[in-house]
Amino acid sequence: MSGYVVLVTGAGSGFGRLTAEALTRRGHTVFAGLRDVTGRNAQAAADLSASMRVVELDVTEQASADRAVSEIMSAAGRIDVVVNNAGMIFPGPLEAFTAEEAQRQFDVNVLGALRVNRAALPHLRARGQGLLLQIGSIAGLVTTPFTGLYAASKAALESLTEAWRHELAPFGIESVIVDAASYPTSIGLNAALPADTERLSVYGEAFGGFTTAVVQRSTEIGGDPREVADAVVKLIESDDRPLRTVVGPAGQREPALALSRASAETAEQAGAAMGVAAFMTR
């Protein structure tokens, strides 16, 4: 196998597809994880299979994650990198969401990464090396109105990534996260609005104005989503992998970078104050 053996989840579109394609061009052996490869993602699976291996993977099911990793091990004999990209967004006022909808948001964005990493980690640990790379969001650092569920899920992913980094370092395994700004990808097309339309309507004017402002600002700033894929490739191929990498147009990137630096400094100070600094890896 050439280069690294990489599993990319949610590889059918957006950052996942761009990342899988970029890694393939760089000579790495890529396994593109997609759900429903004979149904809604049949065309994406057909397109990707021309240059990489497609594995069926539904991150909301542990058995599916286990099967996908087993398939990779059978085909490649090892797995070096997991890119946890699969995700979705539930925009809207928190009051309008049911607990079941919130559970779905976390099931994909947070528990999905937990399941896939759980499936891969015994194999990484056996080799004494590996990389877990999560695709996060600036929303995990800054919470704005009407993004509460999504931001909370990405903030949780930040915490998991940092915990993995500390806990897995003794085994030679690294954990990092790429905090991406808003880019024109398909995630917005797949957004799930609250089912409770009555409560949603209470916030109608404010929510509509917020959505319009976000779209307008995104159009003004622009940005190429391939920047995120390029950042992922760079991290995978680098010997120096920081915990957080912020990617986005300057207007969004600089404030998020400042928050990221402040968070790292505060975490280091808090760890020292709690007497656990020796167990924390930077």
Rank of each mutant, 00 (worst) to 15 (best):
L7Q: 06
F15N: 05
T19G: 11
A22M: 10
R25A: 13
T29G: 04
T29A: 12
F31D: 06
A32Y: 09
A32P: 03
G33R: 06
R35S: 05
T38D: 12
T38I: 00
Q43P: 00
A44E: 03
D47Y: 01
D47N: 09
L48D: 05
E56I: 01
L57E: 04
E61T: 06
Q62K: 05
A63C: 01
A63R: 11
S64E: 04
A65S: 14
D66W: 07
R67I: 00
I72K: 10
M73K: 09
M73D: 02
A75M: 01
A76V: 00
V83A: 11
M88H: 09
M88A: 08
G92P: 02
P93N: 14
P93R: 09
E101Q: 15
V108Q: 06
G112A: 07
G112I: 04
A120C: 08
L131I: 04
S137L: 01
A139P: 00
V142H: 11
L149I: 01
A151K: 09
S153K: 07
A155P: 04
E158C: 06
E158D: 14
E162Q: 13
R165E: 02
H166L: 00
E167S: 12
L168V: 04
G172F: 08
I173A: 13
E174F: 03
A180N: 11
A191F: 04
L193P: 07
P194I: 00
R199G: 06
R199N: 11
G204I: 01
E205T: 13
F207I: 02
V214P: 02
V215K: 14
I221Y: 12
G222T: 04
G223R: 07
E227H: 15
E227G: 15
A231K: 12
K234C: 02
L235Q: 08
D240L: 02
R241S: 04
R244I: 03
T245M: 08
V247G: 12
L257D: 11
A258H: 12
L259Y: 07
L259N: 08
S260I: 02
S263W: 10
A267G: 09
Q269T: 12
G271H: 05
M274Y: 14
A278E: 14
